[in-house]
């Protein structure tokens, strides 16, 4: 069952840490099975490197089933590699053929500095959420869930936006390294729901403000983010965010730090 018959050349970005310059390095892997996932193929390479007493390639991953958003990798010029609607950990080697050369790089964006090799720092996303990606409701103060019927259509749409896994592929795909798709998905989810209304305007202002502070670029509507998003987050979310932001900036004062303190 196990080993397969694909032989591949890998060109991989190696970088010791944030303050050292990196470079591409070539490796060969043999006997790769088409049933392996892309990350399992890297496991094989790493085992090989350890045998040679060399340092294995550092890459982020955890769930290996497309939901935690931890894996990244820019593969042959595409975030999460060939195929659409999947993360790198869901990519299987049957998408490649014997003899292929595969180029593997980290996400590249000013707001995502490299930590080591293919691992980048995406904590900017957490800081954006901390500015407004929530509904200010303390534990214990909720009413009975069914006292607030929500039209199925709205709930489904909110769910579609909420499906974002925070991987950052949208940023990596964008020529401007804009985080608009990520931010708009959260703003949309909450503005589509009745629970999200009270903080709706302030949220849009605060999250966009933080996005700028973090050094993400602005959106020029190329649509590359939507095309590469593993979760099919639609660019309509960005249109919605633009509307929300416009209305909010007409009526609200200015971005402020976390609203609704207790």
């Amino acid at each position: 069952m196990s080993s397969g018959n694909m032989n591949l050349t890998l060109k991989i970005w190696r970088q010791k840490n944030v303050s050292t310059a990196g470079k591409m390095v070539s490796y060969q892997v043999t006997d790769i099975s088409p049933d392996m996932s892309f990350l399992e193929m890297l496991d094989v390479l790493n085992e090989q490197l350890i045998q040679k007493n060399e340092e294995p390639i550092a890459f982020d991953h955890d769930c290996r089933e497309g939901i935690c958003g931890m894996c990244s990798l820019y593969i042959n010029g595409r975030p999460h590699g060939p195929g659409s609607g999947i993360t790198t950990c869901q990519l299987h080697m049957r998408s490649f053929k014997d003899g292929d050369t595969i180029i593997i790089e980290p996400w590249r964006a000013k707001a995502f500095p490299v930590i080591k090799d293919l691992v980048v720092d995406r904590s900017a996303f957490d800081r954006i959420i901390a500015k407004g990606g929530f509904i200010s409701v303390n534990t214990g103060s909720a009413q009975d869930a069914n006292n607030l019927p929500i039209p199925k259509h709205d709930a489904d749409e909110a769910f579609n936006s909420a499906a974002c896994i925070g991987c950052g592929a949208c940023v990596a795909a964008c020529v401007n390294s804009s985080a608009m798709l990520f931010v708009s998905a959260k703003v949309s989810q909450l503005s589509l729901l009745p629970q999200g209304q009270p903080e709706r305007k302030q949220r849009a202002l605060d999250m966009v403000h933080q996005m700028d502070v973090e050094g993400f670029g602005s959106c020029s509507n190329t649509g590359a983010c939507e095309a590469e998003c593993p979760k099919g987050i639609s660019i309509e979310n960005i249109a919605r965010l633009n509307r929300e932001y416009l209305i909010a900036s007409l009526t609200e004062k200015e971005p402020k730090k976390g609203s609704g303190d207790n």
């Binding site: 929530f134 509904i135 409701v137 103060s141 909720a142 009413q143 869930a145 019927p149 929500i150 039209p151 199925k152 709930a155 489904d156 909110a158 769910f159 909420a162 989810q189 909450l190 729901l193 629970q195 999200g196």
Partner: peptide, 8 residues
């Protein structure tokens, strides 16, 4: 209340 979009 937190805006978790459970199925409806």
């Amino acid at each position: 209340a937190q805006g978790v979009p459970l199925a409806r």
